[in-house]
Design a protein around this nucleic acid. Structure first.
Lengths: 201, 201
DNA sequence: CGATAGTTAGGACGTCTGTCCTAGTCATGC
DNA sequence: GCATGACTAGGACAGACGTCCTAACTATCG
């Protein structure tokens, strides 16, 4: 019972890490069992299939990010602070992103190519960020275009993550993050100073 | 000899398409032979290994994009026109990007996770775009920050492609493309009107 | 102690993969 | 008309994969 939970969680944790670093399809049961130190054929006492492990991993990521956003909701004094925390993921997790890309973006992309059933579930993590960001922009007084701004920021983060992984360029990431900070400031200065499609980077 | 070239090119073409839609690792020789109508074991008369097919596909993509950029260099009257052509890829290839993401970005990302030897080769396509864009921005009178602007635009395109694939939202893509057009205009208006880290989206 | 349920190890299975081999077809050039 | 080299079909091969099965171990509780 208790050790069940521990073993099960150990599998999920190892799978989460391996799926991130190697991709879902490219990660085998042998890879996971090497980490968890469990017999290969024994996964089926905890999960019915590999897909079920993927589901658990996605749910874990969903829960982890949810908890992170809730923490920011408490710690960040202003909505601007909170959005800044989101942007700063690119710095805080900079090393991993440089090596493996964005965990959400790369999984979403892989599952799309595999046409995997869990495609939609993986997208939920994106949606989580989207609605959270939207809420922050509303609190910033941008009710009218809050969703546009949220999607815009999400897209820019994804782009920076992808190019960070491709070019391995720390300096580029730092500059883009600075730009996003400046953009965020221009969003919150006054009530509606810049329409998103008029202001430059 | 002549039929050799045809068969070989047929393999490369089919592999290019399948690698894009399904991913490199997830595409098997059986998949390719179904399209090309060739015996499975017979690929080795044309390629020594699957990796060699990947090399050929990457070189094809490189050549295709190079040709495309050279065409724009002729057709586009101003550097601004040419950069606009780059941005408009997101519209012109909108349907495919929505379904399968960006061919360059997703391949780069997959090969990074596989730690594949051809990782660097795939990145060359990104570099091709980067240097071409940089040249256009220089021609636009932005010598000082041409590379920054090129990387910035590359990143934004990647981000939009990733989210287009995830959310399947045409309207979002259209809006982001419009924003990028506006941003481009602000880049070329005057000589150095906006530092990239000060202007909003 | 004995029984039961949860957990584990280890391996069998069928399938699919990339790779390689052999025999055969076809066209070109002497 | 025959030899040569390019090309192809079909299948063999070993290894890896996800899945499943069985036997053994462990702890709890009557």
């Amino acid at each position: 019972m208790m050790s069940n939970k521990t073993t099960r969680d150990g599998i999920i944790e190892a799978a989460d890490d391996l799926f991130y670093r190697q991709g879902y399809e490219h990660t085998s049961f042998a890879d996971i069992s090497d980490v968890v130190k469990i017999s290969r054929g024994n996964f089926y006492h905890h999960f019915k299939s590999k897909d079920e492990i993927l589901d658990a991993v996605i749910n874990k990521r969903l829960a982890d990010r949810q908890a992170m956003l809730e923490r920011w909701e408490i710690e960040g004094e202003t909505p601007e602070d909170r959005i800044r925390s989101f942007i700063d993921i690119l710095i805080v997790n900079g090393e991993k992103i440089k090596r493996y890309g964005c965990p959400i973006g790369t999984l979403t992309s892989e599952l799309a190519k595999l046409n995997h059933a869990a495609r939609g579930d993986a997208n939920q993590v994106f949606t989580l960020f989207r609605t959270w960001l939207r809420r922050q922009f509303v609190a910033l007084g941008r009710e009218a275009d809050a969703d546009l701004l949220a999607m815009h920021l999400l897209a820019r983060s994804q782009g920076v993550a992808t190019l960070s992984n491709a070019f391995q360029d720390d300096e580029f990431v730092r500059r883009e993050v600075e730009q996003m900070h400046g953009w965020l400031r221009s969003c919150s200065a006054g009530s509606a100073p810049e329409r998103p499609n008029r202001s430059g980077p």
